[in-house]
Simulated scan of single mutants.
Amino acid sequence: MPELPDVEGFREVLTACGRHRRVTDVEVRDAGVLRGVSAQRLRRELKGRRLGEAWRHGKWLFVPTGHDGPTLVWHFGMTGSLRCCSPDEPVERHDRILLTLDDSRQLRYRDQRKLQGVRLVDDTEVERITDGLGPDALTVRGAEFRELLSGRRRAVKSVLMDQSVIAGLGNLLCDEILWRARVAPRTPARDLSETALRRVHARMGRVLETSVHAGCVPPRPSWLTGHRDDSDPTCPRCGWLLSSHRVGGRRTVWCPRCQG
């Protein structure tokens, strides 16, 4: 599932491929990924417009289209991605929307499960989307982070995954951060000491920095993510057998020895 590092990578793809480029054609191969806009309106509104500077908040990607144009909004759901392709590259089965640019390259939205998708919105709707999100996980400061978590009754993992609290963290990131901070994922957030909250925030910053550089949450041998899907997963830090249960409806992996 695309999380903040993946979406930051998609922002870089869009910037490298489409910034300041004019859209010359819009092909909607599957309208099932459109949200609140028809294929006809998407083509009408985008064709001839120039793509602006893309920006991201959490897992959402926003692309203005000219001075007075609407904003193209992407949410990648479970399986979405954005690719920059040459026109002679074969179109794949799950390429749902193709934007042809004035240098003939194409931005292709690829998505297998179609759980989210593409929107075309005005400034008011952009504000509505961002107002429903917490601060971006890459930019939230330590004091604000501690204030956001302290006093909440839910499990700390559930709080971290709540996009209205902090935007951008998903299942893999949260498990990795809490493992590195030596905090059990089912611990109520309000029960964490200030020292523990500081540690979670610090580990979050390090995990995000590495993951953004990699363009994903990397399955490295020294990371929890490198072992969570092993047949008999063991902790890369202490060698203890990892536990796996559901927290907040999501499969959660942790080390009962390191994380208590």
Rank of each mutant, 00 (worst) to 15 (best):
D232F: 10
G249Y: 09
I129T: 05
R96L: 06
G58R: 12
R198C: 07
R56S: 06
R113V: 04
W223R: 15
G226D: 03
V28A: 14
C174D: 01
P185M: 02
E92F: 11
P185Y: 05
P87F: 02
A196S: 02
A54R: 03
L148W: 14
V91E: 09
R199Q: 08
P218Y: 07
Q116V: 00
K157S: 00
L192H: 00
G48T: 08
G77R: 11
G80L: 08
D6K: 14
R180K: 07
W179C: 06
D122C: 00
T187K: 05
R153D: 02
V183L: 05
R44I: 07
D111V: 06
R146N: 03
G80P: 10
T130D: 01
A54Q: 00
I166R: 08
V253S: 09
R11L: 08
E3F: 11
T65C: 13
K59A: 11
S222T: 14
L169A: 11
V159H: 02
H245I: 15
R128Y: 00
E27D: 11
R83S: 10
R11Y: 05
S81F: 15
L242G: 00
R228Q: 05
D175C: 14
W55H: 05
R105W: 03
R113K: 07
Y109W: 15
H201M: 02
D25N: 12
V183R: 11
G48K: 07
S158A: 12
A196E: 04
C84R: 12
L51E: 00
G117N: 02
G9R: 15
L241E: 01
S104G: 08
T210F: 12
R190H: 03
V159T: 11
G170M: 02
R206H: 07
H67M: 09
S244Q: 10
C216W: 13
G168S: 12
R83T: 06
K114N: 01
P2Q: 10
R22D: 01
T225Y: 15
L99R: 13
K114A: 03
F62M: 10
E12P: 03
R237N: 06
R250L: 04
A196I: 00
H213E: 12
V118T: 05
R152C: 03
T139H: 08
V212D: 04
C258Y: 10
